[in-house]
Design a protein around this nucleic acid. Structure first.
Length: 484
RNA sequence: GUCCCCAUCGUCCAGAGGUCAGGACGCGGCCCUUUCAAGGCCGAGACUCGGGUUCGAUUCCCGAUGGGGACGCCA
């Protein structure tokens, strides 16, 4: 098989959202799986709503997810330009060819009239399609209209016997009656090409072999197939990816919460987790129970046929789980690198942190965090000198004379310990508990509240070691003084 | 309204003409244990309905119902 050429063609009228990211991912996976080419084309022809800021945001989101493109607006390529707005002349040339072969015609119907007809039809309870008034115009009538300088659009002349069936790689055979397709506009009265014309012209020019896009485009596909044929170009393979829905089964949108990948990046999700989660949302590798995949594993297993036909509801809890799993699997040094900026932003960073110590602390914290952000407050215990103590926790474990006496005894023992590592400390604490005739938990809970200020923390012996003897003793003294 | 797509646990996916209908998230319990996580084990939880085809359908076909999408001189 010839190496496929696929493309992701976002319109920069908003940030890269979850659905778009997944479409991009599927395209990317397919290209990488088959040694093909992944093209990024920016469909910025809606000049009103497009912006450079959004282009930058989309590129940023793609890079964050590590979906690298082989051809695109920034890197160029043999089929450029990759900004759709810069390809206008080609689109119009295609329209001209269609006009010449009679596959398209000029329409002079004023928009207001069409709007009115549409409104009337809708009021009567039905949909409306262009009634082809201008398709029936004689040459003389056209000449007269042109002479009068009447504004005109170019419409595609949908053949009555048009066969629009195609074999979608996700859905199988899809066919639409030609009668339900209207003579759609190719060129606006201001002379600019419409989306239907632009995509097809560009996909032909860019030699795209597989069009992988959202399900919301299936209804455009028959029109586009007609265009491919009229332009004498081979029809690519289509694969329509189902949409991502919110919990209410409506198309995922702002009101469902965070929808742009940038927001997830900001909240401390890992791109590895996002890719894994998105890949499995609507796609399955088939046999096997594996859920956690690396990028390379996904590339090795990906098939368009494995995409399921039904829409999928976005499940944030599962994303959280994936994120936690991927955090735990990251190499310690890498996890530290990922969280460093957040620690710094929280004022918890110091350049003289010992790398080994940092890694141990972060690894200790990772199984207790869902997002990178969760590591920050937890890290605080290890970063500061003295901690604030939760009054309820103090009351519970250091509230009486006995508790404080135990803590004071523990302090002396810790101060005298030969070494200050978990392996040394654990028997020491347990031994003291036995001497004093209490369960080890009593001392452990007291130590935890004194040292961390909380009733929950990672294993106390690791905490003691990583906080370090000096600070542990100071915190205990502080707790003793405060509780008295 | 018209056209198109979809239909297995709450959610995301497996699944085969005859299966104890499988896994994951979440939920409940137990274990581990110094708390919280992580981890391990166990559990509750689904084939939308009605017709066919068939010895036998959750699986194949048709219909209904439900959900989604598209019906712009937006993309």
């Amino acid at each position: 098989m010839k190496a496929p050429r696929v493309r992701f063609a976002p319109s920069p009228t908003g940030y890269l959202h979850i659905g778009g990211a997944r479409t991009a991912l599927f395209n990317w996976l397919y290209a990488r799986r088959h040694g093909g080419t992944f093209v990024l084309r920016i469909e910025d022809t809606d000049t009103e709503r497009s912006s450079d800021e959004m282009i930058a945001a989309i590129l940023h989101g793609m890079r964050w997810l590590c979906l690298d493109w082989d051809e695109g607006p920034d890197v160029g390529g043999p089929y450029g330009p990759y900004l759709q707005s810069a390809r206008r002349e080609r689109h119009l040339a295609a329209a001209q060819r269609l006009l010449e072969t009679g596959a398209a015609y000029h329409c002079y119907c004023p928009p207001e009239l069409l709007q009115q007809k549409r409104a009337t039809a809708e009021a009567a309870g039905g949909g409306w399609m262009y009634d082809r008034t201008c398709r029936r115009l004689s040459a003389d009538e056209r000449a007269a209209l042109d002479a009068a300088g009447r504004p005109r659009v170019v419409r595609f002349a949908v053949p009555d016997d048009a066969d629009t069936a195609f074999d979608d790689w996700v859905h199988g055979r899809i066919s639409v009656p030609a009668a339900s397709i209207e003579d759609f506009v190719l060129v606006r009265s201001d002379g600019t090409p419409t989306y239907q014309l632009s995509v097809v012209a560009d996909d032909i020019d860019m030699a795209i072999t597989h069009v992988v896009r959202g399900d919301d485009h299936v209804s455009n596909t028959p029109k586009q197939i007609l265009l491919y044929r009229a332009l004498g170009a081979p029809v690519p393979v289509f694969a329509h990816v189902p949409l991502i829905l919110g919990p209410d089964r409506k198309r995922l949108s702002k009101r469902h919460g965070a929808t742009s990948v940038g927001e997830y990046e900001a909240q401390g999700y890992l791109p590895e987790a996002m890719v894994n989660f998105l890949a499995l949302l609507g796609w399955s590798p088939g046999a096997g129970d594996q859920e956690l995949f690396t990028r390379d594993e996904l590339v090795a297993k990906f098939t368009l046929e494995g995409i399921s036909g039904g829409n999928a509801v976005f499940n944030p809890e599962k994303l959280d789980w994936f994120n936690q799993q991927h955090m735990m699997r990251l190499a310690p040094a890498e996890l530290v690198r990922r969280v460093a900026g957040r620690l710094e932003a929280a004022g918890l960073w110091r350049d003289d942190y010992d790398q080994g110590w940092l890694e141990r602390v972060i690894v200790l914290l990772a199984p207790r965090a869902r997002r990178l952000d969760d590591l920050v407050p937890q890290f605080r215990t290890f970063a500061v000198d003295l901690v604030e103590r939760d009054p309820a926790a103090v009351a519970k474990h250091l509230g009486d004379e006995m508790g404080r006496a135990h803590l004071a005894a523990l302090r002396e023992r810790l101060a005298a310990a030969d070494a200050f590592d978990a392996a040394t400390l654990e028997p020491l604490v347990r031994g003291l508990a036995e001497e004093r005739g209490v369960k080890a938990g009593v001392l452990i809970h007291a130590a935890r509240v004194a040292v961390t200020g909380q009733t929950v923390s990672p294993g106390i012996f690791e905490v003691l070691e990583l906080v370090g003897r000096d600070r542990v003793l100071r915190r205990i003294d502080d707790a003793l003084a405060g509780a008295a």
